[in-house]
Amino acid sequence: MSDNFNKLKHVFIRNWKSIFESIPLSIAIIVSFYTIMVEDITTKTQQELFSYIIMILGLLAFATLIERFLSLKEITQLCKETNDYLIEREMKPNLDSIIFDQKSLPPLEDRLRSATDIAITGGSLFRLADSYSNFFEQKAKEGCLIKFLMLKPGCDASKLVAEYVVYETSTSDYEVQLRTALKKLYRLKQHYPDQVEIKTYECVPPFSLLICDPKKETGSIMVELYTHAIPNRDRPEFIIHAREHRLHKLFLEQFNKMWGEAIPWEPS
Protein backbone atom coordinates (compact mmCIF):
# COMPACT_ATOMS: atom_id res chain seq x y z
CA MET A 1 0.00 0.00 0.00
CA SER A 2 2.81 2.36 0.94
CA ASP A 3 4.67 1.56 -2.31
CA ASN A 4 1.59 2.31 -4.39
CA PHE A 5 1.10 5.60 -2.56
CA ASN A 6 4.73 6.60 -3.19
CA LYS A 7 4.41 5.72 -6.88
CA LEU A 8 1.23 7.78 -7.12
CA LYS A 9 2.97 10.65 -5.34
CA HIS A 10 5.92 10.57 -7.76
CA VAL A 11 3.58 10.48 -10.76
CA PHE A 12 1.72 13.49 -9.38
CA ILE A 13 4.96 15.44 -8.78
CA ARG A 14 6.22 14.70 -12.29
CA ASN A 15 2.92 15.68 -13.89
CA TRP A 16 1.64 18.37 -11.53
CA LYS A 17 1.78 21.04 -14.20
CA SER A 18 -0.38 19.10 -16.65
CA ILE A 19 -2.81 18.15 -13.88
CA PHE A 20 -3.07 21.73 -12.61
CA GLU A 21 -3.60 23.07 -16.13
CA SER A 22 -6.34 20.50 -16.76
CA ILE A 23 -8.52 21.27 -13.71
CA PRO A 24 -10.28 24.45 -15.00
CA LEU A 25 -10.65 22.96 -18.48
CA SER A 26 -12.07 19.73 -17.06
CA ILE A 27 -14.58 21.68 -14.97
CA ALA A 28 -15.63 23.68 -18.04
CA ILE A 29 -16.17 20.46 -20.02
CA ILE A 30 -18.16 18.85 -17.18
CA VAL A 31 -20.37 21.91 -16.74
CA SER A 32 -20.96 22.11 -20.49
CA PHE A 33 -21.81 18.40 -20.67
CA TYR A 34 -24.13 18.68 -17.66
CA THR A 35 -25.87 21.71 -19.10
CA ILE A 36 -26.46 20.09 -22.48
CA MET A 37 -27.16 16.47 -21.49
CA VAL A 38 -28.72 16.63 -18.02
CA GLU A 39 -30.40 20.01 -17.72
CA ASP A 40 -33.45 20.63 -19.83
CA ILE A 41 -32.28 23.61 -21.83
CA THR A 42 -35.76 24.22 -23.20
CA THR A 43 -37.04 25.02 -19.72
CA LYS A 44 -34.29 27.55 -19.00
CA THR A 45 -34.85 31.21 -19.35
CA GLN A 46 -32.68 33.30 -21.60
CA GLN A 47 -31.05 34.84 -18.52
CA GLU A 48 -30.14 31.40 -17.09
CA LEU A 49 -28.68 30.22 -20.40
CA PHE A 50 -26.66 33.40 -20.63
CA SER A 51 -25.32 32.77 -17.10
CA TYR A 52 -24.27 29.22 -18.07
CA ILE A 53 -22.46 30.52 -21.14
CA ILE A 54 -20.67 33.21 -19.13
CA MET A 55 -19.61 30.63 -16.53
CA ILE A 56 -18.28 28.21 -19.16
CA LEU A 57 -16.42 31.00 -20.97
CA GLY A 58 -14.99 32.15 -17.65
CA LEU A 59 -13.71 28.65 -16.88
CA LEU A 60 -12.17 28.37 -20.36
CA ALA A 61 -10.52 31.78 -19.96
CA PHE A 62 -9.21 30.78 -16.52
CA ALA A 63 -7.81 27.53 -17.97
CA THR A 64 -6.07 29.50 -20.74
CA LEU A 65 -4.71 31.99 -18.21
CA ILE A 66 -3.28 29.20 -16.05
CA GLU A 67 -1.66 27.61 -19.09
CA ARG A 68 -0.11 30.94 -20.17
CA PHE A 69 1.10 31.69 -16.65
CA LEU A 70 2.84 28.33 -16.28
CA SER A 71 4.34 28.60 -19.77
CA LEU A 72 5.62 32.10 -19.01
CA LYS A 73 7.12 30.85 -15.75
CA GLU A 74 8.89 28.05 -17.62
CA ILE A 75 10.18 30.47 -20.29
CA THR A 76 11.44 32.83 -17.57
CA GLN A 77 13.31 29.98 -15.90
CA LEU A 78 14.86 28.91 -19.21
CA CYS A 79 15.93 32.51 -19.92
CA LYS A 80 17.54 32.74 -16.48
CA GLU A 81 19.42 29.47 -16.98
CA THR A 82 20.57 30.60 -20.43
CA ASN A 83 21.71 33.97 -19.08
CA ASP A 84 23.59 32.30 -16.22
CA TYR A 85 25.28 29.98 -18.71
CA LEU A 86 26.32 32.87 -20.98
CA ILE A 87 27.67 34.87 -18.03
CA GLU A 88 29.66 31.88 -16.82
CA ARG A 89 30.99 31.30 -20.33
CA GLU A 90 31.96 34.97 -20.67
CA MET A 91 33.76 34.88 -17.34
CA LYS A 92 35.60 31.73 -18.42
CA PRO A 93 36.14 32.30 -22.15
CA ASN A 94 37.41 29.60 -24.43
CA LEU A 95 40.93 30.45 -25.61
CA ASP A 96 40.01 29.53 -29.17
CA SER A 97 37.48 32.37 -29.13
CA ILE A 98 40.05 35.06 -28.25
CA ILE A 99 43.21 33.78 -29.97
CA PHE A 100 43.23 33.77 -33.76
CA ASP A 101 45.59 33.93 -36.73
CA GLN A 102 46.18 36.41 -39.55
CA LYS A 103 43.71 34.64 -41.83
CA SER A 104 40.91 35.58 -39.42
CA LEU A 105 41.79 39.28 -39.29
CA PRO A 106 40.33 42.09 -41.39
CA PRO A 107 42.81 43.91 -43.68
CA LEU A 108 45.45 46.00 -41.92
CA GLU A 109 44.16 49.15 -43.63
CA ASP A 110 40.75 48.68 -42.03
CA ARG A 111 42.23 48.09 -38.58
CA LEU A 112 44.42 51.21 -38.69
CA ARG A 113 42.26 53.51 -40.80
CA SER A 114 41.33 55.90 -37.98
CA ALA A 115 44.60 55.60 -36.01
CA THR A 116 46.64 58.72 -35.25
CA ASP A 117 49.48 57.04 -33.34
CA ILE A 118 50.93 53.67 -34.41
CA ALA A 119 53.86 51.61 -33.14
CA ILE A 120 54.97 48.35 -34.75
CA THR A 121 57.58 45.90 -33.49
CA GLY A 122 58.78 42.70 -35.10
CA GLY A 123 61.67 40.82 -36.61
CA SER A 124 62.28 42.12 -40.13
CA LEU A 125 58.89 43.81 -40.83
CA PHE A 126 59.62 42.83 -44.43
CA ARG A 127 56.03 42.00 -45.37
CA LEU A 128 54.68 45.22 -43.87
CA ALA A 129 57.31 47.38 -45.56
CA ASP A 130 56.77 45.62 -48.87
CA SER A 131 52.96 45.33 -48.99
CA TYR A 132 51.81 48.38 -47.04
CA SER A 133 54.32 51.10 -47.94
CA ASN A 134 51.64 53.14 -49.76
CA PHE A 135 49.28 52.83 -46.81
CA PHE A 136 51.91 53.98 -44.31
CA GLU A 137 52.82 56.87 -46.59
CA GLN A 138 49.16 57.94 -46.67
CA LYS A 139 48.93 57.71 -42.87
CA ALA A 140 52.10 59.81 -42.46
CA LYS A 141 50.70 62.34 -44.91
CA GLU A 142 47.59 62.59 -42.71
CA GLY A 143 49.81 63.41 -39.72
CA CYS A 144 49.78 59.98 -38.07
CA LEU A 145 52.82 59.21 -35.88
CA ILE A 146 54.44 55.89 -36.82
CA LYS A 147 57.21 54.05 -34.97
CA PHE A 148 58.97 51.00 -36.41
CA LEU A 149 61.07 48.79 -34.12
CA MET A 150 62.91 45.85 -35.67
CA LEU A 151 66.03 43.71 -35.38
CA LYS A 152 69.43 45.13 -36.18
CA PRO A 153 70.89 43.53 -39.32
CA GLY A 154 73.77 41.15 -38.63
CA CYS A 155 73.18 40.82 -34.88
CA ASP A 156 73.07 37.43 -33.15
CA ALA A 157 69.37 37.82 -32.40
CA SER A 158 68.50 38.18 -36.09
CA LYS A 159 70.38 34.95 -36.85
CA LEU A 160 68.53 33.09 -34.09
CA VAL A 161 65.15 34.38 -35.30
CA ALA A 162 65.99 33.37 -38.87
CA GLU A 163 66.98 29.89 -37.73
CA TYR A 164 64.26 29.09 -35.18
CA VAL A 165 61.30 31.43 -35.68
CA VAL A 166 60.97 32.38 -39.34
CA TYR A 167 59.44 29.70 -41.55
CA GLU A 168 61.60 28.28 -44.37
CA THR A 169 63.92 31.28 -44.65
CA SER A 170 67.70 31.01 -44.53
CA THR A 171 69.84 33.29 -42.40
CA SER A 172 71.22 35.03 -45.49
CA ASP A 173 67.74 35.56 -46.98
CA TYR A 174 66.48 36.94 -43.68
CA GLU A 175 69.39 39.38 -43.59
CA VAL A 176 68.43 40.60 -47.07
CA GLN A 177 64.80 41.01 -45.96
CA LEU A 178 65.89 43.04 -42.94
CA ARG A 179 67.99 45.44 -44.96
CA THR A 180 65.39 45.75 -47.72
CA ALA A 181 62.66 46.61 -45.20
CA LEU A 182 64.89 49.17 -43.48
CA LYS A 183 65.67 50.89 -46.78
CA LYS A 184 61.98 51.16 -47.70
CA LEU A 185 60.99 52.44 -44.28
CA TYR A 186 63.89 54.89 -44.26
CA ARG A 187 62.70 56.38 -47.56
CA LEU A 188 59.35 56.94 -45.85
CA LYS A 189 61.12 58.61 -42.93
CA GLN A 190 63.00 60.92 -45.30
CA HIS A 191 59.72 62.19 -46.73
CA TYR A 192 58.01 62.49 -43.33
CA PRO A 193 60.75 62.99 -40.70
CA ASP A 194 58.34 64.42 -38.12
CA GLN A 195 55.92 61.50 -38.37
CA VAL A 196 58.14 58.44 -38.83
CA GLU A 197 60.78 56.96 -36.49
CA ILE A 198 62.84 53.81 -37.00
CA LYS A 199 64.87 51.99 -34.37
CA THR A 200 66.67 48.64 -34.22
CA TYR A 201 67.44 46.39 -31.28
CA GLU A 202 69.50 43.27 -30.60
CA CYS A 203 67.38 40.85 -28.55
CA VAL A 204 65.28 37.88 -29.65
CA PRO A 205 61.66 39.10 -29.56
CA PRO A 206 59.13 36.74 -27.94
CA PHE A 207 56.32 38.52 -29.77
CA SER A 208 55.54 41.32 -32.18
CA LEU A 209 53.26 44.24 -31.31
CA LEU A 210 50.90 46.39 -33.32
CA ILE A 211 50.00 49.30 -31.05
CA CYS A 212 47.18 51.60 -32.06
CA ASP A 213 46.51 54.91 -30.27
CA PRO A 214 48.03 53.89 -26.91
CA LYS A 215 46.93 57.09 -25.14
CA LYS A 216 43.27 56.84 -26.14
CA GLU A 217 40.46 54.91 -24.47
CA THR A 218 39.74 53.33 -27.85
CA GLY A 219 43.34 52.15 -28.23
CA SER A 220 44.44 48.55 -28.67
CA ILE A 221 47.50 46.33 -28.87
CA MET A 222 47.64 43.28 -31.11
CA VAL A 223 50.14 40.70 -29.86
CA GLU A 224 51.55 38.05 -32.19
CA LEU A 225 53.41 35.22 -30.49
CA TYR A 226 56.68 34.11 -32.08
CA THR A 227 56.21 30.37 -32.27
CA HIS A 228 58.74 27.86 -33.57
CA ALA A 229 59.11 27.73 -37.37
CA ILE A 230 55.54 28.10 -38.61
CA PRO A 231 54.26 30.50 -41.32
CA ASN A 232 53.43 34.05 -40.23
CA ARG A 233 49.78 33.57 -41.14
CA ASP A 234 49.45 30.72 -38.61
CA ARG A 235 51.02 32.41 -35.60
CA PRO A 236 48.62 32.87 -32.67
CA GLU A 237 47.49 36.46 -32.13
CA PHE A 238 45.23 38.25 -29.70
CA ILE A 239 44.05 41.83 -29.17
CA ILE A 240 44.20 43.73 -25.89
CA HIS A 241 41.95 46.78 -25.62
CA ALA A 242 42.73 49.84 -23.53
CA ARG A 243 39.88 48.96 -21.15
CA GLU A 244 41.80 45.80 -20.21
CA HIS A 245 44.06 47.96 -18.10
CA ARG A 246 46.48 45.43 -16.61
CA LEU A 247 47.54 43.66 -19.81
CA HIS A 248 47.38 46.82 -21.90
CA LYS A 249 49.72 48.55 -19.46
CA LEU A 250 52.06 45.53 -19.34
CA PHE A 251 52.57 45.27 -23.12
CA LEU A 252 52.80 49.04 -23.49
CA GLU A 253 55.57 49.06 -20.88
CA GLN A 254 57.27 46.23 -22.76
CA PHE A 255 57.29 48.32 -25.92
CA ASN A 256 58.51 51.44 -24.12
CA LYS A 257 61.37 49.48 -22.55
CA MET A 258 62.45 47.98 -25.88
CA TRP A 259 62.09 51.35 -27.62
CA GLY A 260 64.16 53.04 -24.94
CA GLU A 261 66.98 50.50 -25.33
CA ALA A 262 66.88 50.51 -29.14
CA ILE A 263 69.08 52.65 -31.41
CA PRO A 264 67.80 55.01 -34.14
CA TRP A 265 68.66 53.52 -37.50
CA GLU A 266 70.57 55.38 -40.18
CA PRO A 267 71.92 53.82 -43.40
CA SER A 268 75.67 53.27 -43.31
Score class of each variant (00 low, 15 high):
Ala162Ser: 13
Met150Leu: 15
Ser172Phe: 09
Thr180Cys: 09
Phe207Pro: 09
Ser131Leu: 14
Leu178Ala: 01
Val176Ile: 13
Ser172Asp: 14
Pro214Asn: 07
Glu202Phe: 03
Cys155Pro: 06
Glu168Ala: 12
Asp173His: 07
Leu210Ala: 07
Glu168Arg: 13
Thr218Phe: 11
Glu142Lys: 10
Leu185His: 07
Val196His: 03
Tyr164Ser: 11
Lys189His: 14
Leu185Cys: 08
Ser172Pro: 02
Gly219Phe: 10
Gln177Trp: 00
Ile146Trp: 08
Lys147Met: 04
Thr200Pro: 06
Val196Phe: 07
Tyr186Cys: 11
Ala181Leu: 08
Arg127Val: 15
Gln138Val: 12
Asp130Thr: 14
Asp173Asn: 13
Leu210Arg: 05
Val196Asp: 02
Ile146Glu: 07
Cys203Asn: 05
Ala129Thr: 04
Leu149Ala: 06
Leu128Gln: 02
Glu217Ile: 09
Tyr192Asn: 02
Leu210Trp: 06
Val166His: 03
Gln177Ala: 04
Ser133Cys: 10
Lys159Leu: 07
Ser172Val: 13
Leu151Cys: 01
Glu175Phe: 04
Thr171Val: 15
Phe136Gly: 03
Asp130Ala: 12
Val196Asn: 01
Val204Gln: 02
Met150Ile: 09
Gly123His: 11
Glu202Leu: 05
Tyr174Ala: 00
Lys189Cys: 08
Phe135Pro: 06
Leu145Met: 13
Ala157Gly: 03
Cys144Phe: 05
Leu145Pro: 02
Glu142Gly: 07
Ala129Ile: 03
Ile211Leu: 13
Lys184Tyr: 12
Phe148Lys: 00
Thr171Asn: 12
Met222Phe: 11
Gly143Thr: 02
Thr180Glu: 14
Leu145Phe: 14
Gly123Tyr: 11
Val165Trp: 02
Gln190Gly: 07
Phe148Thr: 01
Ile221Met: 10
Glu202Gly: 05
Phe136Asp: 01
Cys155Ala: 06
Gln138Thr: 15
Pro214Arg: 07
Val166Lys: 06
Leu178Asn: 06
Lys147Arg: 15
Phe148His: 03
Lys147Phe: 09
Thr171Cys: 11
Lys216Met: 12
Asp213Ser: 09
Pro206Arg: 05
Asp213Glu: 09
Lys141Met: 13
Ala162Gly: 12
Leu182Ala: 03
Met222Ala: 13
Pro153Tyr: 01
Glu197Trp: 13
Glu202Met: 08
Ile211Trp: 04
Ser208Gln: 13
Lys147Pro: 03
Leu125Cys: 12
Ala181Trp: 00
Lys152Ala: 00
Tyr174Lys: 00
Pro205Tyr: 00
Glu197Ile: 07
Tyr132Pro: 05
Gln190Pro: 10
Lys141Ala: 13
Val204Met: 12
Lys141Leu: 13
Leu188Met: 10
Glu163Phe: 06
Pro153Gly: 02
Met150Cys: 15
Gly122Ala: 12
